[in-house]
Amino acid sequence: MKIGVVTFPGSLDDGDAARAARYAGAEAVRLWHADPELHGVDAVVLPGGFSYGDYLRCGAIARFAPVMETIAREARDGLPVLGICNGFQILCEAHLLPGALTRNQHLHFRNRDQRVRIENATTAWTGDFSAGQEVVIPVKNGEGCFVGSTELLDELEANGQIVARYVGENPNGSMRDIAAIRNEAGNVVGIMPHPEHAVDLLTGPSVDGLGFFTSVLKAITPGRRTTTEEVPA
């Protein structure tokens, strides 16, 4: 199984994401923002960082990278895609996920270990969790406040598209404590906390984040795209 990890100018956590993919048992394939080819990967991770220096808006420039055109097309055909922090912002800018990520309400960069509750365990990236399970993974962002209209938020609730919520103090003021969402099909997930920083007790607060990477390996078969309905419960 091959998990591609995209590097944009300004990416910081691409190496960590590649390590997490290897820990899960996958082959990590480094993908370059200017190369539209995905080189046969079975899933893609858009890592955290500050792509293009966060100019204009976070992720607003990265969404136009050549690799994103291919990822967007393949995601609509079922390719599993996980956007972490800046990757989440890119997915929203690319309209692969709804809503937007804005400045933290307190206007401070927040960096801490965060308790998160898994709300939906049927996505390609959360199948190894149980609904209601609480995990601890780091959060580190300055623009992680998820916002959307009341209509959108109600729709996400009704469709089960809220993948995870913050437990305890909301670190950025996200509406309805949203930490992660998915698209309707369940193959595209955006998460603001960093599961790739919670795969090894030597460097993280837990190994809870590893489940995001092991989940996708069970959800797909090489050469085949998977939607929510096909992910084992």
Rank of each mutant, 00 (worst) to 15 (best):
Q114Y: 06
Y166P: 00
L82D: 00
G148W: 12
S174D: 04
L202H: 12
R57Y: 13
G99A: 03
Y52W: 12
L152K: 11
A158N: 11
D54Q: 11
N183A: 02
S215P: 06
R22I: 02
G49S: 04
A164M: 12
A26G: 09
A185M: 09
T226V: 14
T123E: 01
A180G: 05
I178S: 05
R117I: 03
R57E: 06
G211A: 15
V44H: 06
K2S: 04
H95D: 14
R225G: 01
P36S: 12
P222D: 11
P222H: 14
V188H: 07
I220W: 12
D200K: 15
L38F: 12
V81M: 03
S206N: 05
A20N: 04
K2A: 05
V136I: 14
L201A: 06
R63G: 02
G10F: 08
I178R: 10
H95E: 15
V45N: 04
E119Y: 05
N86T: 04
D16H: 14
A158S: 15
G99H: 07
Y166A: 01
I220Q: 09
G83A: 09
L201K: 09
T7L: 15
P66G: 01
A94L: 12
L56S: 05
G223W: 13
G4K: 12
G142H: 10
N183L: 01
V6I: 13
T226R: 14
D208M: 11
S51L: 03
I178C: 09
F146M: 01
I118R: 07
G173L: 08
A164H: 08
V207W: 01
G223D: 08
G132A: 05
K2C: 00
F109K: 02
G209Y: 11
N111R: 09
V45K: 10
A219K: 07
I137M: 10
I191Y: 13
V147Y: 03
A131S: 14
I191D: 03
A34K: 12
F109A: 03
L56E: 05
A65Q: 03
R182H: 01
A121Y: 10
G211N: 14
G10S: 04
I181P: 05
A233V: 06
